[in-house]
Design a protein around this nucleic acid. Structure first.
Lengths: 343, 343
DNA sequence: ATTTATTTTGCAACCGGTTGCAAAAAAACG
DNA sequence: CGTTTTTTTGCAACCGGTTGCAAAATAAAT
């Protein structure tokens, strides 16, 4: 049998013949302790297999080194990258992610409550499908919070790290226009998502500026292949478009397969523009031209910010936006080559 | 400004005019408390926005309600389902997952240590690419541990929940044989993964029993599309096979695309059998015939078991295996129809 | 109305650390 | 060497809860 009762500070102190404070200080960064006692303590600790209890420390210091990570979109492959990056980045800084899965939770209040009870040092809300009121609730509770992938708001009382969705929508419209597409469809993400709304707004605005017909719009009811396929089937049943701008790569893949089953070839008969540039976008079966969202920038920035807020809770609200860019593959006609001197 | 200092037990007790114990009991399941005081306390608590500190409770009860969730495979889409299910299942039972990302961690000991310091109530190690010695380390430290997707061992000192990989390998071989494939290739997952080894062993054993040529084997160096593609390119350069059994659906998709770029059509000229039956396997561009791994059974069982172990740490070691099954799609020739009375 | 059994309550110790403060020890100074 | 300054140390209180125990209050039985 093994040590079931954890060895405590007191045990080590007794063995090393010092006070409990001395042991505590040995394991506290920057505390005043002589080399001699430190060595004594470390020896005793090693021999007994002592590890300080972060729970007890948290209670005393009022810092848990836990960061809540709230998401409601577990089935979308972008979240693989998101989780991977979040966990790694937090880990590197000595923090731990406490995951909250909101995908089925009926009552977001519940999880807010849960995170508060665990006294997390901060929260990162990583979703664009929750209303800003949700992250706000944390702020009201005095918990540092970042809304990653969120909407930046004029009244902005919470930190946002993400992209300018409206500008991305404009970029999408311009891209399709430049390649000669005129009859255009859109398959957005869930209509309630702020990212969907903003991208669509930018998209339509630019189309208008360019003076072409407004796009035919559908919304996928979630970020999934089948939702994309269904939306595309619906779109095709009603209108013939030359290109489709999708609000997410997975949705786009579903839409592409729907188009193919309908006998259309990509990009000759119909073009597709995705969003996110997730890993799979490069897979040969789709080889998707898409708008790259700088996920890893967003995440490291969000982590950096939330960690900084732990020490300066009242820093003024910031919005950090990163630029998106087109990733050229083969689901759209190529851009016109700039023939110098050509007419 | 809002309440920055959290309301404590004492504050509520004073306001309600009762002792601290009374407040504590109000928030403790099954404690002895009269309805009258409970109501008084609840009223005061509500008015002050009191939420018990789980940190303090953990310290006093020696239970954190945290379950460590260790994985090293964040980029494989199966893990979307895994995370989604794990977090939800734990949440439902009042536990929280404390995520550990081992994908880049050079030293697994570090994270073990971290989890111990947080005094997690239990650990679920969800990977087949770590040696059994890793979960064992938790056990030695007196922390309940489950190895999900792990290898069940004869000397089995840790609980394993997963599948019988060897039997699955046999099933794969039999399936390919039944459909008339004779020149067969295998693209396994990473060679060091126990799941890879076991499946391969079962596969080869069955081929031998069936008296056909041994398979040509390659290993993908990780669970990724590109690793699958590379392995397939390598395989094709050396030998012409009629069908390939892949150790994972993502690997399989990479392999399929490699075959297609090589001009082969699926399933007419080459067949593919995947593993896992992840969501994407049903996507039209691949439509993969694959072996279904009952992920959700494995996960709910693992959670159930780890939670049970919190109360009975010394329950005897269990191995829980769930059956796999073939999911018929279109990447393999159809099975021979059983012509009654036929020759 | 007593006596007895049951339920509810508060006291106080404890969980395992941290930290301000003053005393003790060590180092620097004259 | 004695003094002054700096560093190290231990004491004791605290973080915010839980819980065994005995006293107090209530309910049941006689």
């Amino acid at each position: 049998m093994d040590v079931l009762l954890a060895v405590t500070l007191k045990d080590v102190a007794e063995r090393a013949g010092v006070s409990r404070s001395a042991v505590s200080r040995t394991f506290t960064e920057g505390a005043s302790i002589s080399d001699k006692t430190r060595r004594k303590v470390e020896k005793a600790a090693r021999e007994m297999g002592y590890r300080p209890s972060l729970i007890a420390r948290s209670l005393a210091t009022n810092r848990t080194k836990l960061i809540g990570l709230v998401a409601n979109n577990f089935r979308n492959p972008v979240f693989l990258e998101v989780f991977d990056l979040f966990t790694q980045t937090l880990q590197k800084r000595g923090y731990r992610p406490l995951l909250v899965n909101l995908s089925t939770e009926t009552d977001p209040e519940k999880s807010l409550d849960m995170l508060r009870q665990y006294r997390v040092d901060g929260v990162i809300v990583a979703t664009s499908t929750l209303p800003p009121s949700f992250p706000s609730a944390f702020r009201k509770a005095g918990v540092p919070v970042i809304h990653a992938f969120g909407k930046f708001d004029s009244h902005a009382d919470i930190h946002v790290v993400g992209i300018d969705n409206q500008r991305c929508g404009q970029m999408a419209a311009q891209t399709l226009f430049d390649r000669g597409y005129r009859a255009i469809g859109v398959i957005g993400g869930p209509q309630s998502a702020t990212s969907t709304q903003d991208r669509l707004a930018g998209f339509e605005q630019r189309l208008k500026q360019l003076g072409i017909e407004q796009a035919d719009v559908r919304f996928a009811h979630n970020y999934s292949y089948s939702a994309g396929r269904d939306a595309m089937i619906d779109l095709m049943s009603e209108k013939q478009v030359e290109a489709v701008f999708c609000g997410d790569d997975v949705i786009c893949m579903g839409a592409m397969d729907a188009a193919r089953s309908h006998g259309l070839s990509i990009p000759d008969e119909i073009g597709f523009l995705g969003f996110n540039d997730m890993n799979m976008a490069g897979w040969a079966a789709y080889d998707l031209t898409t708008i790259h969202q700088p996920t890893s920038d967003i995440i490291s920035s969000a982590v950096e910010l939330v960690v900084a807020m732990v020490d300066t809770p009242e820093r003024s609200t910031e919005t950090r936006l990163f630029p998106c860019s087109i990733v050229e593959r083969s689901s759209l006609r190529p851009p016109p080559t700039d023939q110098v001197g050509g007419v």
